[in-house]
């Protein structure tokens, strides 16, 4: 009903304007300095690549936790990675290290009334964020299929067996509404299916993230713009965060990730979508390589029905704030007091 208008709204109210032109010229614009650095790195690689490779490996192994690095050390780490990725994937790769902007707290709102379960977000996310494609296959977004409520007249009389003939409970119920029953493998010819609605889940970017609390080496932490990030080079793979996350948002690189060079997205961020290694945890970062440059996340851009909204929670005029103000909003598993910044809403 409101699809086209909604798309317009997105353009009109967008707190962060996704500018088509700047996106196309991204490499020449915002990432100019990093690109230049990568070029020089690639040059260094061509002259004596074995030595450079060895240096990169040792350098990476000995580097500090990203958050505690000085600006110089960060630059060095980023250059090292750019060099390695450029060589490994045969395309010029940039590793951004843009910090969180002041006055920004990212938030997300998802309209479960609109979602049609097409999973375009899932695949756009994989494409953008360089997840391992296969063995292990890693996806950060899961779309759950929910059965619309109904009660079964046929089961009316099948109460709990009671010898005295007094029925103590009924069996006519069926789960309905948002119940976490884990059905996310649906493969219909067409979506949406009759009798179902859809419920996408991803990292909730909690304000009180249980994963951050349990991390023994502080490799995962909350950046000032509210995004929970992971320094993949510092992670020891203990999987405490995976056990502690109530939203099943985190994934583990069980083996060496398989990322075909031709599918690799070379525009990366150190804390975001740069290629990962085996034995480390990863998860949604609200596409910080995009959002910190003023763009929308890949899932927001691709959503064909405009169910996904993203913006600055500190800006009273942003679209997410308007949604929080005007719509019926809920957070998942609110009883756990994790304070997600990922909201669900209905019109």
């Amino acid at each position: 009903m409101s699809e086209p208008r909604d798309k317009d709204e997105k353009k009109k109210d967008a707190p962060l304007k996704p500018d088509e032109a700047s996106r196309r010229e991204f490499l020449g614009g915002a990432g100019l300095s990093v690109t230049a650095a990568a070029l020089s790195g690639a040059g260094a690689l061509l002259s004596g690549s074995d030595e450079a490779e060895a240096k990169a490996t040792w350098g990476e192994w000995f580097q500090k936790n990203y958050r505690l690095m000085t600006e110089d050390e960060k630059r060095e780490a980023v250059l090292r990675l750019e060099k390695r990725y450029t060589e490994e994937f045969g395309k010029q790769t940039t590793v951004d290290s843009a910090p969180a902007k002041e006055g920004v707290l990212f938030g997300y709102a998802l309209n479960i009334q609109k979602c049609i379960g097409c999973r375009r977000c899932v695949y756009a996310c994989v494409k953008e964020n360089n997840q391992s494609r296969d063995n292990p296959e890693i996806q950060w977004i899961r779309v759950l299929k929910m059965e619309k409520g109904n009660f079964l007249a046929g089961d009316m009389d099948k109460g709990y067996p009671d010898p005295a003939g007094i029925q103590v409970g009924g069996n006519a119920y069926k789960n309905s509404g948002v119940v976490l029953e884990g059905e996310h493998y649906y493969e219909p010819a067409e979506v949406p299916e009759k009798g179902y609605f859809y419920f996408p889940m991803q990292c909730m970017q909690c304000e009180k993230p249980p994963c951050v609390k349990v991390c023994p080496v502080r490799t995962t932490y909350r950046d000032p713009d509210g995004i929970v990030v992971i320094d993949y080079n510092w992670c020891i793979g203990c999987r405490m965060c995976i056990a502690a996350c109530p939203y099943w948002a985190r994934r583990f690189n069980w083996g060496e990730p398989n990322l075909p060079a031709e599918e690799m997205n070379p525009v990366t961020h150190y804390l975001g979508n740069r290629p990962r290694m085996k034995g480390v945890a990863e998860k949604c970062t609200f596409c910080l390589q995009r959002t910190r440059q003023g763009r929308y996340t890949a899932c927001v851009e691709v959503c064909p029905v405009g169910a996904r909204k993203f913006g600055n929670l500190l800006d009273p005029d942003s679209e997410v704030r308007k949604i929080l103000e005007k719509k019926k909003v809920f957070r998942l598993k609110a009883e756990l007091n994790t304070y997600p910044k990922f909201f669900y809403f209905m019109d």
Partner: peptide
């Protein structure tokens, strides 16, 4: 055997690593 990155166990050692 539990660790995904046993080579990085030194990150746990106070002073040279970070001990949360």
């Amino acid at each position: 055997f539990h660790m995904g990155r046993p080579d990085r166990l030194w990150h746990l050692i106070p002073v040279i690593g970070i001990f949360n």
